[in-house]
Amino acid sequence: MPEGSASLQLAVGDRVVYPNQGVCRVSAIDVKEVAGQKLTFVTMRREEDGAVVMVPEGKVLAIGVRKVASAE
């Protein structure tokens, strides 16, 4: 991610809310080559049905992904 860009610090195992998809758990953060460029992807699995969603790390905030609020 370019320096100075806002990002959401995620780790494998974090629970997040993905708008219009529901609650997901981060299952992987991997670098993949797409069209000759190396990009970091956040892979999330929906808790409702296990569907897998992959989002480029740089788009996580723009999409509206946020961490699940704690009970505290």
Rank of each mutant, 00 (worst) to 15 (best):
M54W: 06
V52G: 03
A51G: 10
V12M: 02
E3I: 11
G58D: 15
E72H: 10
A6K: 13
V16K: 01
L10Q: 00
S27W: 13
A51W: 15
K67T: 07
A69M: 08
S5E: 11
M44W: 01
S5C: 04
K38E: 07
K38V: 08
E3P: 11
A35I: 03
V60E: 05
L39Q: 09
V16C: 00
G50K: 02
A69E: 13
V52M: 11
G4Q: 11
D30N: 10
A11W: 05
E33R: 06
V16N: 00
F41W: 14
R45W: 12
S5A: 12
V53T: 05
G58E: 15
V55L: 14
V31L: 06
K59T: 13
E72M: 10
M44E: 00
S5N: 11
L8S: 09
L61Q: 14
E72S: 12
K38P: 05
R25Q: 09
M54T: 14
C24Q: 00
K67L: 15
D49C: 02
L39H: 15
V26N: 00
Q37A: 08
C24T: 01
M44L: 14
A71Q: 13
M54I: 15
G64I: 11
R46E: 02
R15V: 13
R66P: 06
E48L: 13
K59S: 12
K67C: 09
S27R: 04
K59R: 09
T43E: 08
V26R: 00
P19Q: 06
A51P: 02
M1L: 12
Q37P: 01
A6M: 12
R46F: 08
T40H: 05
Q9H: 11
E3Y: 03
L61D: 11
L10K: 01
T40K: 11
V16M: 03
Y18Q: 02
G22R: 03
A51V: 11
K32S: 06
F41G: 00
A51K: 12
D49Q: 01
G4L: 10
A35N: 15
G4M: 11
M44K: 00
V31R: 05
V55R: 02
G50M: 03
V52W: 06
K32A: 07
V12L: 05
Y18N: 02
R15Q: 06
P19M: 07
A35F: 09
P56A: 12
V53C: 05
V53P: 01
R66M: 11
K59H: 14
R25E: 08
A35D: 14
E48V: 13
A28K: 09
E72L: 10
R66E: 11
P2W: 07
K67M: 12
R25Y: 13
D30Y: 13
V12Y: 01
A62N: 08
N20C: 01
E72K: 09
E47W: 02
G58C: 08
A6P: 13
E57G: 13
Q21G: 10
Q37R: 11
S5T: 13
P19G: 12
A62K: 08
L10S: 01
V16F: 07
R25M: 12
I29G: 00
Y18K: 04
D30V: 14
G50D: 07
A28P: 00
Q21R: 09
S7H: 12
V31M: 07
G50R: 02
A6H: 13
V53Y: 15
I29N: 00
G4H: 11
G4R: 09
V23D: 02
L39P: 01
A35T: 04
E47I: 07
K67E: 06
D14K: 01
G64V: 09
V52K: 06
G58K: 14
V34F: 08
L8Y: 08
G4E: 12
E47Y: 04
Q9E: 10
Q21C: 08
Q9F: 09
K32L: 14
Q21A: 09
A69N: 12
V52C: 03
V55S: 03
K59D: 15
V31W: 06
R45N: 08
R25D: 02
G13H: 02
V68H: 07
G22M: 05
G13E: 01
S5L: 12
V23L: 11
R15S: 05
R66S: 10
D14T: 03
S27Y: 11
L61W: 07
G58T: 14
S27V: 15
V23C: 00
V31F: 07
R66T: 14
R46V: 04
G58N: 15
G13N: 04
R66W: 05
V52R: 05
Y18H: 13
G13K: 01
D14C: 01
V23Y: 14
Q21K: 14
A51Q: 10
E33Y: 12
V60H: 06
L61C: 07
V16I: 13
G36P: 00
A69G: 13
G36Y: 02
D14Q: 04
N20G: 15
M54E: 11
R45P: 01
M1H: 14
S70Y: 10
A69W: 04
M54Q: 09
V42M: 02
V23E: 04
A28G: 08
Q21P: 01
L39S: 05
D30P: 01
G36Q: 02
Q21H: 15
K32M: 14
V55T: 03
S7L: 12
R66V: 15
